[in-house]
Write a protein that binds this DNA or RNA. Structure first.
Lengths: 253, 253
DNA sequence: CATTGTGAAGGAGTTCACAGCA
DNA sequence: TGCTGTGAACTCCTTCACAATG
């Protein structure tokens, strides 16, 4: 779901599957918790439970990184933390800019987990001149006019867009032009970017809509189960196409 | 990625693939924009471009809903908006509660796109007694003590968790016990829930870590490309196992 | 002998390419 | 003629089940 376009066939890269990459942060979090409790080793079964995945999947995921476990014993927690951190590129420091310091942008700036793992909020940028200079989460907000300079001066390659939908594409283009190659988009828009730029999106309303779909389905199944229990099987199983009996031919607004 | 566990084999349900469900909101958004510009019909090619997917995929997705297009012409915008809305369950109203009114919770409460499509913030809940009664986004915050009553009085089935990680699992359990069956989790924790409850998670730091992985890979490829360009092919292609030459045998903190 | 690491089977999602239809 | 709808091929991911092994 991440980028859509894969980067390139990659000259015999040790291709870690995208699905695996997406789970590594989950494992890392679980491992970090174990590490803080000074647990020395952990089995695939235990770790899988903590991360909310199945153990075969976890073992296969780890097998892409190398053979870091010990048969009969499990995995060394500290060592795995290090290996996964390195694989994810968290042993280096990633300066990040957040563009759009509204409610959400401010919340992101204040988010603690940010700094914890290799990420550092290098700058906050907003288009509102009234915001300029005002500190948010201890960092002074800078004006959009200086975006390019800020990116370059700080060597930023990861940008977070938390602007209104209307501004997102333009901000995105400026970020990319200034050298950003990874974007985390909170604006409800599809961003188009050149090849080689990664975009991930976080979209509240999409998530809610997906939940609503399942919620509705549950209600439907409940009703169905009830009907079946009552053995009142009178469902006319044969509508031309659309799986659905009473739909207006034209929509009612 | 949503729930992990599928709901049940479903008595001959018209199984819309999960991947398709996850794209329907995207199509809906693009269609809504077209609708607002009074565009009457749209081809799979155009709509796919607007939604950022490929047209074959879009056509296959729509084929799961039914045959709503016209060959040689395209899709009727208004009709599709209605069909997708209905499929997603957006023709009804979904009361939602947000638990945890910190920076993020407040940002979510203020988020406009919320109300736009079938969702209504029925209540805001926080554990801090000092917050009680204080209005956020025009809605008075209520105390966690009343959580169960609030859920039941409002017939809430979708809950949003925006608490700190430590509180999330407990809040989740109370929500579920009170009747919530869909949860959108912003806390950086794995929630465990009984069967039949859907959880979707939104996790900033996971997204950033995934971006960092790709970012690091880009840097590596760049270096590789450079090396190749200089034709200095002196890569010793044979390290026992771990795809990596200089790793400390034990991690350095 | 408990637990990893992994071939092989199975399933889900994507893309191709073209038949079918307005 | 132009565009949809879809079987079939393909790629990616997950799960099974067991041989390998510290």
């Amino acid at each position: 779901m991440a980028t859509g376009r894969t980067h390139r066939p990659a000259t015999r890269s040790r291709g870690i599957p995208e699905a695996t990459v997406a789970r590594l942060p989950l494992y890392l979090r679980a491992l970090t918790a174990l590490s803080e409790r000074s647990v020395p080793t952990v089995s695939s079964e235990e770790l899988a439970a903590a991360a909310g995945v199945n153990s075969a999947k976890l073992r296969k995921d780890f097998s892409y990184l190398g053979s870091y476990g010990t048969r009969g014993v499990g995995y060394d927690v500290e060592y795995l933390v290090y290996q996964i951190s390195r694989e994810l590129g968290l042993t280096q420091d990633w300066p990040v800019v957040i563009v759009g310091i509204g409610n959400l942008g401010a919340a992101l700036a204040n988010y603690g987990g940010f700094a914890s793992r290799g990420f550092r909020v290098a700058a906050l940028i907003d288009a509102d001149p009234a915001m300029a200079g005002k500190p948010v989460a201890g960092i002074p907000v800078q004006h959009t006019d200086d975006l390019e300079k800020i990116i370059k001066d700080n060597g930023v390659s990861i940008g977070v867009i938390a602007t209104p939908a209307g501004a997102a594409q333009q901000v995105c283009e400026r970020l990319v032009a200034a050298g950003v190659t990874s974007i985390l988009n909170f604006a409800p828009t599809v961003l188009s970017v050149p090849d080689g730029v990664d975009v991930r999106k976080v979209d509240l309303s999409i998530e809610l809509q997906i939940l609503a779909f399942h919620e509705q389905r549950k209600a439907g199944e409940e009703a169905l189960a009830l009907a079946e229990a009552e053995a009142v099987v009178e469902v006319s199983e044969e509508s031309g196409k659309g799986p659905d009996g009473d739909v207006p031919a034209v929509m009612p607004a």
